[in-house]
């Protein structure tokens, strides 16, 4: 039976799905982050970066939009040998799957109880983990469907890389769950109302940050996309709109990952209330703190591209299995031994 919604509930649902954290937010996030990444890396490299497109003088703020418009005008080329259905579907599935996980993340508490999120479920952590696991299969599928040698090599690398990051992520989530005794992301945030998990579990934070960078294929671990080795990895053959979708889906993933780490380790929306925002709505204040923490994480993740060379796939697997997994297990052991003192002090559980 479909529950009957009141008018204000319908308005709220539309706001959530279309504006924040639904459709508009990941797109805006992608646009701002692409622009920021280009400007920021340009400054590191003593370049100028995008300059002319956009409202403010000499900032190039609208450069990502101009690039996107250019890409959607281009011809979509499908290779003759490609397995056409999967090849054409992969970019669309990739962007949908990537933006899906945002629906399960609580961005702020509502004053009348409940959370500002699209779909509430007590198992949201597991759902997001499952969505993240789907991504490598899209990469492998797209690489295989392109039926090109470099795409295949990139897809193999993506599949190998999965082995390096998937287990450390799951293991470091274990210690979070031990600490908060729930799979509900909103409850995990509320458990951090007195002390953030980054202070209680610094090792777990580092492990999950590194593993998530590998999951996102960011610079030290952008092995499936390694330009100098496999041209562009699994999306080599994509052109025009399909390429734009592939690119945007990476930034959707970045949005989801930074949101998740914020929720798990940085206390989500918790922070002192901002008076101006609080007067409008207490939700805005929570969202402000959430976005600020996301921004800091994004800068850290982007910075890798400016200062690190790319690792080799065997070196990444080596690091994953001999460094990240033992560290995550050590974190679990520490958590198990210290949980009896910490859990009574945490709020909300």
């Amino acid at each position: 039976m479909i529950p009957i919604l009141s008018f204000s509930e319908i308005i709220e649902l539309i706001l959530k799905v279309l504006i924040f954290p639904g459709l508009a937010f990941p797109l805006l996030f992608a646009m701002i982050v692409i622009w920021f990444e280009r400007k920021f890396l340009a400054r590191i490299m003593l370049r100028i970066g995008p300059l002319h497109v956009g409202p403010l003088n000499r900032t190039g703020l609208f450069q990502p939009i101009a690039d996107f418009l250019k890409l959607i005008q281009k011809e979509i080329i499908v290779p003759d040998n490609a397995y056409k259905i999967l090849y054409n579907a992969a970019p669309i599935i990739a962007s949908i799957v990537a933006s899906m996980s945002v629906a399960f993340i609580p961005y702020a508490p509502k004053p009348d109880g409940g959370y500002w999120m699209i779909y509430y479920t007590p198992w949201s952590l597991l759902v997001i983990l499952a969505i993240f696991t789907a991504r490598p299969f899209i990469m492998v599928g797209a690489g295989w469907a392109s039926n090109s040698k470099y795409c295949t090599l990139g897809a193999i690398r993506a599949a190998l890389q999965l082995l390096a990051y998937e287990v450390p992520i799951a293991l470091s989530l274990v210690s979070i769950v031990i600490m908060s005794r729930t799979f509900d992301l909103a409850k995990i945030v509320e458990a951090q109302s007195s002390i953030w998990f980054i202070i209680l579990q610094p090792i777990g934070f580092i492990v999950i940050l590194i593993a998530m960078m590998a999951e996102l294929s960011r610079r030290p671990f952008d092995i499936p996309l390694a330009e100098q080795e496999v041209v562009f990895g699994w999306p080599t053959e994509y052109t025009g709109t399909q390429f734009a979708l592939v690119m945007v889906s990476e930034y959707f993933d970045l949005c989801a990952v930074t949101s998740l780490i914020t929720v798990l380790f940085l206390g989500g929306w918790s922070g002192p209330a901002i008076p101006i925002l609080n007067d409008v709505s207490p939700i805005l204040s929570g969202v402000f703190w959430f976005l600020l923490k996301m921004a800091i994480l994004t800068v850290i993740i982007i910075m890798g591209r400016g200062i690190y060379p790319r690792l080799r796939i065997d070196q990444l697997l080596d690091a994953g299995w001999t460094l990240l997994i033992p560290l995550a297990i050590i974190q679990i052991i520490i958590t198990l031994f210290t949980a009896q003192w910490w859990i009574p002090l945490l709020g909300g559980v």
Binding site: I44, M45, L46, D222, Q228, G306, I307, P309, R310
Partner: peptide, 16 residues
């Protein structure tokens, strides 16, 4: 060399 390893910052600095 730094491009071959994927470090683009050291492409720009010595070029400058």
């Amino acid at each position: 060399f730094s491009v071959a390893t994927g470090l683009e910052t050291m492409l720009m600095w010595p070029i400058n």
